[in-house]
Amino acid sequence: MRPRPTLGSPLHILLLACSFALAGYAGVRLFADDWRGVALWLVGAALLHDLVLLPLYTLADRAVVRGLGGHRAGVLYVRVPAALSALLLLVWFPLISGMVEDRYRSATGLSTDGFLARWLLISAVLFGGSALLLAMRVRPLARGRERGRPRRATNRRPPADH
């Protein structure tokens, strides 16, 4: 017999209802101004992602797996900083690229000059930290193999007589 799903606490239900109400309000406001443009943007973004970006980052991921000799455990040490760096690029692209320099300067009085350097620095720190974690993980394994020990010690017991 399958367990019945629980509804949740009253606070959980209230927060869920508020989030749906906020999303609905945002959707109504967004579609009120230019619903055709928004719908076109959503469809275009979905098609761009599914037909162009997904195959590209699938190929990049397979190249990383092959580059690491098929060791899937080390792939996460490349995937995570790459995903975080790509997310930062996606969010801050107009400022990183300098495409909105005049608009940004008129709104804030600041320049967009430092955004590219900061994004590159953050990306370098993410990849460097990931490489350091990978090196710390691999080093004890390599030291154990140098001493002639297997990767994981197992307790060998004689079979139990029944």
Rank of each mutant, 00 (worst) to 15 (best):
2 R>Y: 08
5 P>H: 06
13 I>P: 00
13 I>T: 10
13 I>D: 03
15 L>N: 14
20 F>M: 12
23 A>I: 12
31 F>R: 02
32 A>E: 14
33 D>A: 13
33 D>R: 12
33 D>V: 14
34 D>C: 02
35 W>E: 06
36 R>F: 10
39 A>D: 03
40 L>A: 08
43 V>D: 01
45 A>V: 09
46 A>F: 05
47 L>D: 06
48 L>P: 03
51 L>W: 15
53 L>W: 12
55 P>N: 03
55 P>K: 02
59 L>P: 04
60 A>T: 10
65 V>K: 06
65 V>E: 09
73 A>C: 06
77 Y>H: 15
77 Y>S: 08
78 V>I: 13
80 V>G: 04
85 S>P: 10
85 S>H: 08
86 A>S: 15
88 L>P: 03
94 P>T: 00
97 S>I: 03
98 G>H: 01
99 M>K: 05
101 E>M: 01
102 D>A: 14
108 T>Q: 02
111 S>P: 00
111 S>Q: 01
111 S>H: 02
112 T>C: 01
113 D>Y: 00
113 D>E: 14
117 A>T: 06
120 L>F: 10
121 L>D: 04
123 S>Y: 02
124 A>P: 01
124 A>S: 10
131 A>N: 08
133 L>P: 04
135 A>M: 14
135 A>Y: 15
136 M>D: 09
138 V>Q: 11
139 R>G: 13
141 L>D: 07
144 G>V: 07
145 R>L: 14
148 G>A: 08
149 R>S: 05
149 R>A: 11
150 P>C: 04
151 R>D: 10
152 R>D: 09
153 A>K: 06
155 N>G: 07
159 P>N: 12
160 A>G: 12
161 D>F: 13
162 H>G: 08
